[in-house]
Computed example of a mutant assay.
Amino acid sequence: MRQNILGSSTVRVSELAFGAAGIGNLFTPVSDPDAALAIEAAWESGVRYFDTAPHYGLGLSEHRLGEALRARPRDEYVLSTKVGRILEPAPQASGDDLANGFAVPACYRRRWDFSAAGVRHSIEESLNRLGLDRIDIAYLHDPDDHADQALAEAYPELARLRAEGVLGAIGVGMNQPDLLARLIRETDVDVVLLAGRYSLLDQRGLAELLPLAAERGVGVVVGGVFNSGLLADPKPGATFDYTAAPAELLARALELKAVCERHGVPLRAAALRFPFGHPAVAGVLVGMRSAAEATDGAAMLLHPVPVALWGELKERGLIPPEVPTPEEVR
């Protein structure tokens, strides 16, 4: 699988990244063996970039990912995690964490913390859960309501950790392109992780963020290319951004699917390949909770997509004419 350097950093990531929220029991449980098989299948398919966070399953995702990766040569893969939420024991807690999206016991509580001390503590705790010697990329995670503290305290601390060699690259991950653009302008981040805002259905990231990233030499990893499911399998009941898709978006997704099928391309393949039309995009991140999903993700990314498909999508008004699309047939 092709690998790309993140912006002006020295970190090289595979074009397909393993999103590990699923193995943190996102919405429904995943067994330990199935989580391990998902990581194994991704590795066998050429995936060498794995992304997690303390938020995912209250640390379960980090535990499982570290367990699976410890047997791998450390210099052969890139690992990212995130800061901004500290996990604290909740001894009186009962029930599960489904209110936050994860089918795990609510034995910890999350505390927002973008202070310098909080960042360093979060990195130390992540290293303990992962059982690894280093983290390659650390993202500020969803600083939407904490932008000032993230800029004044969390970012400088990440920059110090990068200078110390604890981190190879630093970035910001969220689904709000305007704030990501602000952080690119005001900091020296290496990468941004943009979720859901640069897909076949939603190109809001193109207005400012992607051109700015290209200008400043900041790498972009695009998450949410299926918009939580609608572009993976458009049908009644499919979700867009984790809620029921509006009728007009479902109709548009079905049109996209029909055009893709006329060109012999699964919609999933076009959705995965689409972001690479922009030169700032280094990779796409896909949630994988089973071996089948990991294998399918790699196969879809490598599926040939003819240039004529993009042309027809523009002719039919399904994507705007100014949106850059991949030129090569893979």
Rank of each mutant, 00 (worst) to 15 (best):
T28R: 13
T81K: 06
G205V: 00
E248K: 10
D142C: 06
V323D: 13
D188W: 01
S31F: 06
R2P: 15
F226E: 01
I123R: 01
P29S: 15
A280G: 03
V191Q: 01
E153M: 04
P326G: 01
A152T: 14
R273H: 09
P91N: 03
F50A: 06
E322N: 11
S126T: 11
L79A: 06
E248C: 05
G24N: 10
A71Y: 09
D202N: 13
D96F: 08
H121A: 12
R197Y: 06
L26I: 06
L60R: 10
A35P: 02
I5Q: 14
R330P: 15
G165Q: 05
V218Q: 05
Q203L: 04
R197L: 11
L301P: 05
F18N: 08
W310F: 11
V221A: 03
R109S: 08
P234S: 07
G196N: 04
Q203H: 08
P91M: 07
A159Y: 02
L250H: 07
A294I: 01
C107S: 11
R109I: 12
E186L: 15
I137F: 02
V191A: 02
A280D: 00
H146K: 12
P91V: 09
D202C: 09
P89Y: 03
G264T: 07
E67L: 12
E44R: 14
A247S: 13
L209F: 08
A35L: 02
R110P: 03
R216S: 10
R134K: 14
A116R: 08
L267N: 00
A251P: 01
A42F: 08
F276I: 03
Q92E: 13
R197Q: 14
L313F: 06
H303N: 10
I39Y: 04
L79K: 01
L256Y: 10
R129W: 01
R252Q: 13
A117Y: 10
F18Q: 12
A150W: 00
L6N: 04
L158R: 00
A99L: 12
L98E: 09
P89M: 00
R268A: 14
V104W: 06
M288W: 04
P177I: 03
V83D: 02
E67T: 14
V172S: 04
R160I: 05
T52L: 04
V78S: 08
A271Y: 06
A280W: 01
R85K: 12
H141E: 07
Y108M: 11
L158I: 02
D51H: 03
D296E: 15
P279W: 03
A247P: 11
R268L: 13
A251V: 08
F102Y: 13
T52Y: 07
L206R: 02
P143C: 01
S290Q: 05
L183V: 14
V30K: 03
A245T: 03
P275N: 00
L69T: 06
R268Q: 15
R129T: 06
G57Y: 02
F240L: 13
Y139W: 12
A17N: 10
A38G: 10
R162D: 09
C260L: 12
E293V: 02
L65N: 00
D75R: 14
P320R: 10
